[in-house]
Amino acid sequence: MPIISTQGLTKIYNERIVPVTALNNVSLDFDAGEFTAIIGPSGSGKTTLLNMLGGLDKPTSGNITINGLEITGMKENRLMDYRLRNIGFVFQSYNLIPVLTAIENVSFIMLLQKQPRNVIEKRAIELLEQVGLSDRIHSRPGELSGGQQQRVAVARALASKPNYVLADEPTANLDTKSAFTLLDIMEKLNHEEKITLIFSTHDQRVIERARRVITLVDGTVTTDIPVEKQQV
């Protein structure tokens, strides 16, 4: 059974003025433990699809089912709580809280989940060790490089023990070395801990690591194939 399932997902912006179809009848299934890259040219609907999968935006029509639960019709407050407990986000611009240290940024989401303090601190340290930042746990984002900040963002995304992690162009602002380090870490987490990863990206380095690549053009899925088949 897929962890995420979309049926006939359509999103039209400015419906009443100048309608722009960002997604057109997209039906996809994502299994647990997948590492998927969603690719396509700018304006193809990658981010819109990711926003729908993350419950950040609502479709004009169609629905999204996550672990058998339909999230499309959820009220905003319930959806926020759902995101808090089920979805991890990694953003292109890291989006860490600048006034908090790395460990505080990672702990923040667990505090929102009201986890016990001793559990929070232990897990935050573990996650920062996993992303190779055990020596920078008390550094604030401004004291970290872009790559390091994105690794903190990954640790934060994993802190809530999500069902899946959505990453919107996570390597776009990183140099090659930092991008490879980040991808190594995420690939390892995907392999070892079976964390489901869905990336939207233009980055060939990400595409090469993904085990499934979905291509969107003008809001429509044009290809959806495992990497092995694509490479063949």
């Binding site: 407050n77 995101r83 808090l84 953003f91 809280i97 929102l112």
Partner: peptide
């Protein structure tokens, strides 16, 4: 704006 959007995206509710 971006930071507050991120807080809401990761699940910080409106009350908070």
């Amino acid at each position: 704006t971006r930071e507050i959007g991120m807080l809401m995206a990761i699940g910080m509710n409106k009350r908070r």
